[in-house]
């Protein structure tokens, strides 16, 4: 997964967190896709799940606080997207525990996570930057 400059919103804290998310998910995908025994890949899988569950919450909270600070009109809708994603990550984590981190299920999670993150940063979050630009022009 390649971080692209066009993803940058112009808010340092949020941009750094997005880059970190891209870096971590990339490492996760690389670890899953490399040759080797599934058991050897499990520590990375577990580490990523723990990271996603804590870091994503921190990032979403920071992003939502920023949105409120600028009176972002799409705040509620954006918060709903965050909540849905947190719930989906939680559901996967629960299934991983119950089904013993089955390879097929983890691969499914990784595919979804990758596509979700790209869309969220490349499209949904760009609406915040667009709002800031439009608001600036209106002043």
């Amino acid at each position: 997964m390649m971080w692209k400059e066009k993803y940058r919103l112009g808010v340092d804290k949020i941009d750094e967190q997005h880059e970190e998310l891209f870096r971590r998910v990339s490492e996760f995908v690389l670890a899953l896709r490399k040759e080797g025994q599934w058991e050897a890949k499990l520590p990375k899988v577990k580490e990523t799940m723990e990271f996603m569950q804590s870091y994503v919450v921190t990032h979403f909270n920071d992003e939502e606080a920023y949105q409120q600070s600028i009176d972002y009109t799409g705040f509620e809708q954006h918060r709903e997207i965050h909540e849905q994603f947190k719930a989906e990550v939680g559901q996967f984590a629960e299934r991983f525990e119950q089904e013993g981190f089955a390879e097929d299920l983890v691969q499914q999670f990784a595919g979804k996570l990758m596509a979700w993150l790209i869309n969220h940063v490349a499209a949904s979050d760009q609406k915040i930057a667009e709002y800031v630009r439009t608001k600036g022009e209106g002043n």
Binding site: D104, Q108, G111, K112, M114
Partner: peptide, 8 residues
């Protein structure tokens, strides 16, 4: 599964 999940 990784590919079809991303596509989905």
């Amino acid at each position: 599964s990784f590919v079809t999940s991303a596509l989905g």
